[in-house]
Design a protein around this nucleic acid. Structure first.
Lengths: 178, 178
DNA sequence: GTCTATATGACGATAGAC
DNA sequence: GTCTATCGTCATATAGAC
């Protein structure tokens, strides 16, 4: 159910994130969050004074998680593009879960939307450095977005799955300037 | 505001769709729909007995719109892939608006989700016929999904935009049998 | 720091007047 | 066929006991 660590704050934040991911937003009421975190609504609202404050805290957590991720992506052995796109296939790292949760918030919250936009801009720059081709970098981002969309909206993988490294390799060979 | 055609049913359905597209779901309450359609909630509920009925009617409308669309896509002069992916860039035909609206419903409604899945399966088959390669067909679908995701979630175009015709040309050159 | 109890408001839906 | 009025439910948020 809930993990009772040293502080309830993290439990509440994690419960909120899990419910956003699982229900895509509809089931993440403060009552449900409190229940899963093992506190009451009153307890929750002591730690986070309002729903807005709770949402802001989740956005902050996402931004913290992205900092080391950008570094991993930039230095990935197979290249940033493969790393980035293949990650979108599984969507189950702590960063992925935070990204999905904030993506749900972004549908209604400006701060969440800004956070997502900044994260994406940074991703594009790293992909462009890796692939040396803004067109292919943009295509790689769109493919990852499409996988993300499929996973979050459709809720199950579409067959056939795309072989991303093979596809990227083929597209590199078809580069106009070669 | 509202168009008062011969029947209020269409006005209500259109108002519902517009609000789903504009607010991504949060502002599409029956009160708001009724207000935009120029009727009261009581009037709305005479035509559509419940919210579920209203949602089902919108899904039916989408399915009606897809029938001629598949035919246009299959017989498009530049090929089905160009037609499909370029359409995702603008997202402003009646079918696009219906698709976005039902996509919002699909987050919480099983029937809407099934409708979207069936539509996508058909799209994939047509793309595969055009591009002659399931990998490229899947990639084209993901790119269009990514554009759709950007347009609906981020809400504004990402720079730089992908040069779709040029990229599709590269994809065709990357075909195996060439 | 966490609880119970309650105020307040939005939403979906029903009943009945016109 | 469309309206007003109202009810039940569930959500956020507040007040105050422990």
């Amino acid at each position: 159910m809930a993990q009772h660590r040293d502080n309830a704050r993290e439990s509440i934040l994690t419960a909120f994130q899990e419910l956003l991911v699982e229900t895509r937003g509809s089931g993440a009421s403060l009552d449900e969050v409190a229940k899963r975190a093992g506190v009451t609504k009153g307890g929750l609202l002591y730690h986070f004074g309002s729903r807005k404050v709770l949402e802001a805290a989740l956005i902050d957590r996402l931004e913290d998680l992205t900092v080391p991720e950008f570094e991993r992506m930039r230095t990935a052995p197979g290249g940033a593009a493969s790393y980035y796109v293949e990650l979108a296939e599984y969507l189950n790292t702590p960063l992925d879960r935070a990204t999905i949760a904030v993506g749900v918030l972004a549908r209604h919250d400006d701060r969440a939307r800004d956070a997502v936009k900044t994260l994406r801009q940074r991703n594009f720059e790293i992909l462009n450095d890796d692939l040396g081709d803004p067109v292919l970098a943009r295509a790689a981002m769109l493919i990852a977005d499409g996988m993300y969309y499929d996973a979050t909206t459709i809720g199950e993988p579409f067959e056939p799955e795309l072989d991303v490294p093979a596809f990227l390799q083929r597209m590199r060979e078809a580069r106009p300037g070669r």
